[in-house]
Design a protein around this nucleic acid. Structure first.
Lengths: 140, 140
DNA sequence: TTGTAAATGCAACGCCGTTGCAATAATTTT
DNA sequence: AAAATTATTGCAACGGCGTTGCATTTACAA
């Protein structure tokens, strides 16, 4: 269970107004245990699901460094909670995601990630995005 | 310049019929020097651009191991030619892509790619997808 | 050359991202 | 505590893209 107190504190510390809608959305993220959620999955669990409001809410959350865009398989975006040290406009996205190819379940991979790939000379790399695809435990 | 002969040979070896449309699309890929192309970019260069036919053509090319889906930033898919050792239904996608955050230019990165990331126990990883994001030489 | 199987071109549906705008709610100021 | 300010919500609506069905045309094989 997620404590109301923690939800409000997280919204406040990220300069987001404490509306019923946002509290609900954030609660879903905090209860998802690191799993990345799609708009659809969120909508199906909301009391009053308005896809436009949800879209803007997610954008606001992302802007304020609360969530980040995880793997997006076939055009469906999925967001996940940022770690504590994600700050506004400076996401630490240096972790990988795993996405199941059948059920779509997407999780953030903690732990060690080593990436070694060189862009051509004259290119500037700002972000690295690593996604592992396969089958999750339940689909195996 | 791309030789007609090479185009036909490539279509034949991948069990694809040699239609005018497919020859044209494949030529664009072969002339793109490893750069991944989006549907839009392809359409703008085709004589008779029909987005549905293009969609099906790309799908057929992908099925037959001729091209693969490269980075897809914000829902826009981009395809690139597979290397010679890509076979039907068994893509060797073990390379990274670079995508420019301003002009969208996407290229396949040859050379060494080392990925170390662990999925949870009980998960099966089938593919790894690494995308570097940043600025290309022209946009710097 | 004829038959068969695939590719094309068209209409059409649905999902999703996105924007504008008026109404409502949360925060700040007096 | 009330008024003023600013952000959020909910609605309509547009556009892009993936996708499918179907009739027509084309490529390949017999």
């Amino acid at each position: 269970m997620v404590r109301e107190e923690d939800i409000l504190q997280k919204l406040e510390s990220h300069q987001l107004r404490k509306t019923a809608f946002r509290k609900e959305v954030l609660e879903l993220f905090m209860a998802s245990e690191g799993e990345a959620l799609s708009n659809q999955e969120l909508e199906s669990q909301l009391d009053n699901p308005d896809r436009i409001t949800l879209y803007r809410t997610l954008k606001a959350f992302e802007d304020k460094g609360l969530i980040h865009l995880a793997a997006d398989n076939g055009g469906i975006s999925r967001y996940a909670l940022c770690l504590a040290d994600c700050t506004t406009h400076a996401h630490h996205d240096q972790h990988a995601h795993f996405q199941c190819r059948t059920c779509g379940k997407t999780i953030c991979l903690e732990g060690e990630v080593v990436i070694r790939a060189q862009a051509p000379v004259g290119f500037k790399v700002e972000r690295e995005n690593l996604t592992l695809e396969g089958l999750c435990d339940e689909c195996l």
